[in-house]
Simulated scan of single mutants.
Amino acid sequence: MNRRTVSAVRKFKDSDGAYIWQPAQRPGETASLLGYAVTEIETMPDVAANTAAIAFGDFQRGYLIVDRAGVRVLRDPYSAKPYVLFYTTKRVGGGVQNFDAIKVMKFAVS
């Protein structure tokens, strides 16, 4: 979630009136929401009608990053005479591996 969403979620309370948001107890720790660590990512959308403002889950288990070993280098001695250009490429990718491990929350704002 982003910073504006965090400011809205910090005001949520459970049925006993206790806040579900807990700030970091010591320097270097992260804040928690219902006991789970929270990471702020500013590219997430703000809370609005029909926007996925919060992604919740175990991202290490749910998302797989594939990093292929090695870098390809292509030498181009013809394009920029008298210089030699080098083009480098590296193949990486990623995708959701376990859809049950990550859930995206939408809000209905009234």
Score class of each variant (00 low, 15 high):
T51D: 03
Y78P: 02
F59Y: 15
E42T: 14
L74C: 01
A48Q: 12
P23S: 13
A53L: 01
E29K: 10
V92H: 14
V47L: 09
I20R: 10
V71T: 15
P45I: 03
V104G: 02
Q60P: 00
T89K: 09
V9R: 00
L74A: 10
I65D: 12
A69G: 09
Q97R: 15
V104N: 06
T5R: 00
P82C: 05
W21E: 05
E40M: 08
S15D: 08
E42W: 09
L85A: 07
M105Y: 05
K11V: 05
K13V: 15
T30M: 09
A55Q: 06
Q22V: 13
G57S: 13
V6Q: 07
T88W: 03
R91V: 14
A31V: 04
F86N: 13
K11P: 00
R10T: 12
I20G: 04
G62W: 08
Y36G: 08
E29C: 05
R61T: 06
S79C: 05
A24P: 12
T5S: 10
I54D: 01
R72D: 14
K106W: 00
V73N: 12
V9D: 00
R26E: 11
D16C: 04
R91H: 13
R75P: 02
P23G: 15
A37D: 15
Y36R: 11
D14M: 01
A101Y: 02
V109F: 00
Y36L: 11
R75Q: 14
D67S: 14
A24D: 09
R3V: 07
A108M: 01
S79W: 02
R61N: 11
G17W: 07
D16M: 09
Y36M: 11
V73H: 07
D67Y: 04
E42D: 15
F86C: 03
S32N: 08
G35W: 07
Y87M: 04
V66F: 09
A101H: 00
A8R: 01
K13G: 02
P77H: 02
Y78F: 15
E29T: 13
R4F: 03
R3A: 14
F59I: 07
V47R: 01
Y78D: 10
A37M: 03
D76Y: 07
R3S: 15
Y19S: 12
V71W: 03
D100V: 02
G95M: 05
N2V: 02
G93D: 10
V71N: 11
A18C: 06
D58C: 11
